[in-house]
């Protein structure tokens, strides 16, 4: 048995002909493979997302008449947008919905995820109940939305039940085609986007941390506040990004469920599109994208979401 003297290493190293370039090449093949694997995705997203968004940006500076858009470089669309009082009202309305829905879905989502992760002990039950929450997400949003109509309507199940119980003598009017109905539908549609990321974060928490905290004398609520909440913050951030962008970007729910009484930035934009006023719609979209991007960037500054997503 021999052990090479350290000096022999130096000798050998000088005789080894492994140019660094060759090594770099070996590293490169991995990188090239990755690029090739990601290329189809990038091509599709560039064609159907990157390029179209650039077109929106360009068209937002275009002129238009009754029937057509006219290539130009004018700021009128933006100026009109900022001059209009409606703009501010629409944004306030959208932000109001986003804030309410965010708060409600966060409370619901956090508690549901907490229940599934920390209270349901059998894995089979956990998977089963998780699926129960997930399956509606895979069915039609419109159908789920309109399914509130027979519930909340003037002669709907809710009013009928309340009247029969003698709680009210006249049907409640505010239930359907109101902001209330809009919020109910949003919560119904989007809570899952809060549940899943928080569930994923919580599932990664080592249960012994909770036991350690309890041993140290922390009560139930202290354990949640000191351990569970901080360790699920990436999930909360991710859920927040989903819910806020979904609500801010929606027009269909707000139209249907408010019966046309409320509007959002995007529903107003949809009206402009219907009237073939593409440049103002594009300008409005760009402003919205900037605002949403700032909100998302703010959240990302607080929490590193990529680590959570990309593992």
């Amino acid at each position: 048995m021999t052990v090479i003297d350290p000096t022999a290493g130096d000798l050998a190293a000088s005789s080894v002909s492994v140019p660094d370039a060759e090594v770099e090449h070996a590293v490169d093949t991995g990188e090239v493979a990755s690029w090739l694997q990601v290329t189809p995705l990038m091509i599709l997203l560039t064609l159907f997302f990157g390029l179209p968004m650039l077109v929106v940006l360009a068209v937002s500076f275009f002129d238009f008449d009754r029937t057509d858009i006219i290539p130009a470089f004018i700021f009128d669309n933006y100026i009109d947008l900022f001059r209009s009082e409606v703009t501010l009202r629409l944004y306030l309305s959208s932000l109001k919905f986003a804030a309410i829905v965010w708060a409600v879905t966060l409370i619901l989502g956090f508690n549901i995820a907490y229940f599934l992760v920390f209270h349901v002990r059998s894995l089979l039950w956990q998977i089963g109940l998780f699926l129960v929450c997930t399956v509606p997400f895979l069915t039609s949003n419109i159908i789920r939305m309109i399914s509130w109509i027979p519930f909340l309507g003037r002669n709907g199940i809710f009013n009928q039940a309340l009247e029969r119980a003698g709680v009210i003598s006249h049907p409640l009017e505010f239930l359907l085609f109101s902001d209330f109905a809009v919020v109910v539908a949003y919560v119904h549609l989007f809570t899952l986007f809060m549940v899943v990321p928080i569930f994923n974060s919580m599932a990664r928490i080592d249960k012994s941390l909770l036991e350690a905290a309890r041993d140290a004398g922390a009560g139930r609520f202290r354990v949640v506040a000191e351990i569970v909440l901080p360790l699920s913050k990436t999930g909360i951030a991710l859920g927040t990004i989903f819910v806020v962008t979904l609500v801010m970007g929606d027009s269909f729910v707000v139209r249907t469920m408010s019966g046309g009484q409320s509007a959002s930035v995007v529903s107003a934009l949809q009206n402009e599109v219907a009237a073939l006023q593409y440049p103002p719609a594009a300008a409005s979209a760009i402003i919205m994208v900037i605002i949403v991007t700032l909100m998302v960037a703010g959240i990302l500054r607080l929490v590193d979401v990529r680590k959570e997503l990309a593992g």
């Binding site: 997302f49 968004m53 929106v56 962008t245 970007g249 929606d250 027009s251 919205m288 949403v292």
Partner: peptide, 15 residues
């Protein structure tokens, strides 16, 4: 993923 869907649609339609 998080771009409001209608905007993407608008972009593609305009393109």
């Amino acid at each position: 993923l998080i771009m409001p869907g209608l905007f993407v649609g608008l972009g593609i339609a305009l393109t």
